[in-house]
Each structure stands twice: as C-alpha cells, then as structure tokens.
C-alpha cells in the first residue's frame, strides 16, 4: 500500500514536471536569463506548486498523523548555517550551467535522452561523493572528540 502510494505520487510529480517545462533546460535557463530571451513560465510553475502545497499542508497538518505512517517526518533544523548557504550557492552555479535541477531531470531519465543521462550520472556522482566525504568528516570529528575525551578522563 505504501509503495503504491509512493509510486502514484511519483507519477503525479513526473507528469507535473513534464507539463511544466522544468525538464527543458532551454526554458529553465531562459527563465534566469533576465538580460536575454527571458521566458517567465517557470514563475507559474513555482507559483502554482507553492500555492497548492501551502493550502494542502494547512489541511494535512490539522491531522494527528499521515494515513500510512505513524508520524510526520519534518526537517528539524531552523537556523541557516554555512553548509546550507554554500550548498545553495553551489547548486545555483550547477543549475545555471546545466539547466537541469534534480526534480526536473529525474522524471525524464526514463526517456533515455543522452543529455539527461549524462547530467543524471554526474548528479549521482556529486551526491554520493559529497555524502561519503561528509560522513568521513563527521566520523573523524567524532573520533577526535572521543580521543580528547579519553585523554581528559586519563588525566583526571
């Protein structure tokens, strides 16, 4: 049941992306090209999506829990840190260069279009490498802390 629900949500998302033009880098780049052949279509995508989600979430969050799970899983962080800021800036550079964002490119991976596959491969490499580096850094930081803790306990 959960899998069928997730699959159906994916179909609606993929259909929405197909209709919206988000899977078309020429259109995406033109949205950001204010000094050139500006195409404001993507403002309608964002506007429509945010409006429906804003209204829908207000209704969903009046419920105690989701239909098929015990709890809502929402991001807990509320402050802006360096990771978020640098990540957003790097994402923007990549989006401007390629014209694809993850949500725009993933649904059309199934079409087998070579440009999409090239982008998706690089995207996956970027995600996996970054996660490996981040977990190595955080476990290093963790073991440093434990070492320091051990030293401190020895000293005392």
């Amino acid at each position: 049941m959960k899998l069928l629900a997730a699959y159906s949500v994916g179909v609606i998302f993929g259909l929405g992306i197909s209709l919206s033009g988000m899977a078309n880098p020429a259109k995406v780049i033109n949205f950001f090209d204010i000094a050139g052949a500006w195409d404001p279509s993507l403002a309608f995508v964002m506007g429509g999506a945010v409006l429906i989600t804003f209204l829908g979430y207000r209704w969903v969050f009046t419920r105690a829990r989701p239909v098929l799970e015990a709890t809502f899983q929402l991001p807990g962080k509320s402050h802006v840190d360096r990771l978020l800021a640098s990540g957003a800036v790097i994402f923007g550079i990549g989006w401007g260069l390629a014209g694809f964002c993850p949500g725009g490119a993933l649904p059309v991976v199934g079409t087998g279009q070579p440009d999409v596959l090239m982008f998706a491969t690089a995207l996956i490499a970027g995600i996996v490498l970054t996660r490996l580096v981040m977990s190595a850094v955080s476990s290093n930081a963790g073991s440093l802390k434990t070492d320091k803790f051990k030293q401190e306990t020895k000293e005392s």
Binding site: A6, V9, F13, G16, F44, G48
Partner: peptide, 22 residues
C-alpha cells in the same frame, strides 16, 4: 501548461505528506 504542471507538482507534495508524512 506551466501553471497546470506546477499545480500537479504541488498536489504530489501534498499527497506525499498526507499519505506517508514525507
């Protein structure tokens, strides 16, 4: 088309929160 696409993207976000809480 872009507005309709956006509405569908929004609908998928609402449904995923409603059904799976994600």
């Amino acid at each position: 088309a872009s507005l309709l696409g956006g509405l569908l993207i929004g609908l998928s976000a609402v449904l995923l929160m409603f059904l799976l809480g994600r």
